[in-house]
């Protein structure tokens, strides 16, 4: 009687619990509680939290917004790919970036230490927005517009990689952000 694969004793719920288990439950349980509190607390004590500001939108509406934004603040064409406009919006402004097969448009130029309201959405499929080498990753949907306030804290050239599968050219899908001192 009483193996894992045979019926337990009649009144198994009255059997005492052995010390090894009790102590482990106390230790593990306390840690679980700590992790729960810490995850909530990070919303106040931490600087990296996901904004939940988001809107339902339409791909054509978002495409138009991105296009207008691009026209307004284009400063030059990108040196690596002259077909791509580089857009330098003023600090504090709304910045739009759109994923579509197979690119992230436009290329952005931001200033270090300044905050921007970055809007992310897709014009066709579900894409992954992966900022490298920071390694900050978001999911991007067609029809949903996410807004997140970013404050680049290091200067440099950042890549945006698509890291959710969006079609056979998925691995060629890239974008770029320059952060100036």
């Amino acid at each position: 009687m009483g193996y894992s694969f045979t019926a337990p004793d009649k009144n198994w719920a009255r059997e005492p619990i052995e010390r090894t288990e009790i102590l482990w439950i106390i230790i593990a349980g306390s840690w679980c509680l700590f992790m729960f509190v810490w995850m909530i607390a990070w919303h106040w004590i931490g600087n990296q939290n996901m904004n939940t500001e988001a809107y339902k939108t339409f791909t054509d509406v978002y495409a138009k917004k991105t296009e207008e934004f691009t026209k307004q603040y284009t400063v030059r064409q990108d040196a690596s790919d002259p077909s791509l406009p580089v857009v330098a919006p003023p600090p504090g402004s709304d910045v739009y970036i759109a994923g579509s097969i197979f690119q992230w448009r436009p290329v952005l130029e931001l200033q270090k230490g300044k905050s921007y309201r970055l809007h992310i959405s897709s014009l066709d499929y579900v894409h992954g927005f992966s900022l490298q080498p920071e390694n900050i990753n978001f999911q991007a949907y067609p029809g949903y517009e996410q807004v997140i306030t970013v404050t680049p804290n290091k200067a440099g050239t950042y890549g945006i990689v698509c890291n959710d599968y969006c079609g056979l050219g998925h691995h060629t899908m890239l974008g770029r952000i320059y952060v100036k001192e």
Partner: peptide, 9 residues
């Protein structure tokens, strides 16, 4: 590591 990244809100 997370704390060193771009502040996000």
């Amino acid at each position: 590591y997370l704390a060193t990244l771009w502040p996000l809100t």
